[in-house]
Amino acid sequence: MNKLPYILIFLMTIADTLFTAVGMTKGIIAEANPIIKWIFSVNTTLASVTVVMFVGVLLLMIYRFRNHIRWIKYGLGLLVIAKVGVLILHLRWIIEVI
């Protein structure tokens, strides 16, 4: 199976986390996920590292069991589309601020 979706999801997660941290720190955006919002309110660096590590571990687990999950390529495809959508939202507020 192609590793590209896993790499894309991981890289987009890093970008999403970075943009979210900057946007929340500057008071430009609000996090929609209440758990992530709480973690970010405690410590932005801790939240960023936690999110990236958590997603990384999940992606490694999914990759390891990819042959046992028939629908995984479709799920990963939908996740890539969702991540692109989130990054477009981030790009939108970045353009508005600049």
Rank of each mutant, 00 (worst) to 15 (best):
residue 2 N to V: 07
residue 4 L to H: 02
residue 7 I to P: 01
residue 11 L to M: 12
residue 11 L to N: 00
residue 12 M to P: 02
residue 13 T to D: 02
residue 14 I to A: 13
residue 15 A to T: 08
residue 15 A to F: 10
residue 16 D to N: 15
residue 18 L to T: 08
residue 18 L to P: 02
residue 19 F to I: 07
residue 20 T to L: 03
residue 21 A to Q: 02
residue 22 V to R: 12
residue 24 M to H: 10
residue 25 T to Y: 11
residue 31 E to I: 00
residue 34 P to Q: 01
residue 34 P to L: 10
residue 35 I to L: 14
residue 35 I to Q: 10
residue 38 W to V: 11
residue 41 S to P: 01
residue 41 S to G: 12
residue 41 S to Q: 12
residue 41 S to W: 04
residue 43 N to K: 13
residue 43 N to W: 13
residue 43 N to Y: 14
residue 44 T to P: 03
residue 44 T to N: 07
residue 44 T to Y: 04
residue 44 T to D: 05
residue 46 L to I: 11
residue 46 L to P: 10
residue 47 A to F: 11
residue 50 T to V: 06
residue 51 V to F: 07
residue 53 M to T: 05
residue 55 V to E: 00
residue 56 G to E: 00
residue 58 L to Q: 06
residue 58 L to E: 01
residue 59 L to K: 05
residue 62 I to C: 05
residue 64 R to G: 03
residue 64 R to T: 07
residue 65 F to L: 04
residue 65 F to Q: 02
residue 66 R to Y: 06
residue 67 N to K: 07
residue 67 N to S: 13
residue 67 N to T: 10
residue 69 I to S: 07
residue 73 K to F: 04
residue 77 G to V: 00
residue 81 I to D: 01
residue 82 A to P: 09
residue 84 V to N: 12
residue 84 V to G: 10
residue 84 V to P: 09
residue 86 V to A: 10
residue 88 I to G: 13
residue 93 W to M: 12
residue 94 I to Y: 13
residue 96 E to M: 13
